[in-house]
């Protein structure tokens, strides 16, 4: 299998706090990989460092988009990372609340289009077609995710589960090859979680996507993931298949606490 994301020795310092401490992670093409760890382990920070929202203190991030050569991501601005084909969702939902559901998805298309101010003013045929295609493409994404009934609804008026799905739809609209999901099931009820499970598998199989997700719902993680990476206090403590991780003593210790300390 070919690696699609290669992270080496990623370190992030916040003042004295080492939120990430020399993390190495390799994600392979077509995988559903999970990043797990206790609260405050540094999972979200890991996403932020890869996507350019934070600039890592040390380390290397390399991607190999399908059919392209390997390239570094370090120092790129978030929008350029997205252009390269990484898209993400946020743990604490960050939708554009004043816009409709469709417009939220259309924002995802932004970096794949190029209409400027003059295009908007004069509206030549090329620009009109681009806009039409943007609307059609965005609608198609909504259909895939199953949100088409909310098309013209304001994003803020959506039920919670639908808002989480809209985040995925928006990310998908940027045409990524790697999708980073930060706790996509947080706050969902069992029914919604089940649907999410199906959606993620469908995305991998039909959209040719590689997926890295952060999740606290162990049932979901164990059933979905091909590979699991475990971090604790900014350090990677284990990696393997769900079975391997489940029985790893260090992982159990990280989640349940050190019994020898308690005694």
């Amino acid at each position: 299998m070919e690696p699609i994301l290669n992270v080496k020795n990623l370190t992030m310092n916040f003042g004295g706090l080492k939120a990430l401490d020399g993390i190495d992670i390799v994600i392979e093409k077509g995988q559903i990989a999970a990043l797990i760890g206790p609260n405050g382990a540094g999972k979200t920070t890991f996403f932020n460092c890869i996507t350019g929202i934070y600039e890592p203190s040390e380390g290397k991030v390399e991607i190999t988009p399908p059919g392209k050569s390997t390239q570094g991501l370090k120092g790129l601005k978030p929008n350029h990372v997205t252009e390269k084909g990484l898209a993400r969702t946020f743990q604490n939902i960050r939708l554009f609340e004043g816009m409709t559901v469709l417009e939220n998805v259309m924002i995802g298309r932004h970096c794949r289009l190029n209409a400027g101010i003059f295009g908007a003013l004069v509206q030549p045929p090329s620009q009109k077609n681009e806009e039409k295609k943007c609307v059609a493409d965005s609608y198609e994404v909504l259909e895939k995710i199953g949100l088409e009934k909310y098309v013209n609804e304001k994003a803020i008026n959506l039920p919670y589960g639908a808002q989480r799905r809209l985040e995925i739809a928006r990310a998908l609209a940027t045409n990524p090859f790697l999708l980073l999901l930060d706790e996509p099931a947080a706050g969902m009820n069992p029914q919604e979680t089940k649907e999410l499970d199906d959606l993620i598998i469908w995305l991998r199989d039909n959209e040719d996507l590689t997926i890295l997700l952060i999740e606290h719902d162990m049932k979901l993680v164990m059933s979905l993931s091909d590979r699991i990476h475990v971090v604790d206090y900014g350090k990677k403590i284990a990696e393997g298949t769900p079975e391997e991780v489940k029985s790893n003593p260090q992982v159990i210790k990280a989640y349940l606490g050190d019994e020898s300390e308690d005694a």
Binding site: R94, E131, A171
Partner: peptide, 27 residues
Amino acid sequence: RLENSRIGRAWIALRDDEIACQAMGID
């Protein structure tokens, strides 16, 4: 015309959430 164009939407997105806006590929 601007309001419902690619640029206009980008402005509103920027107003609503700067970080998400960047993460969606907007400069």
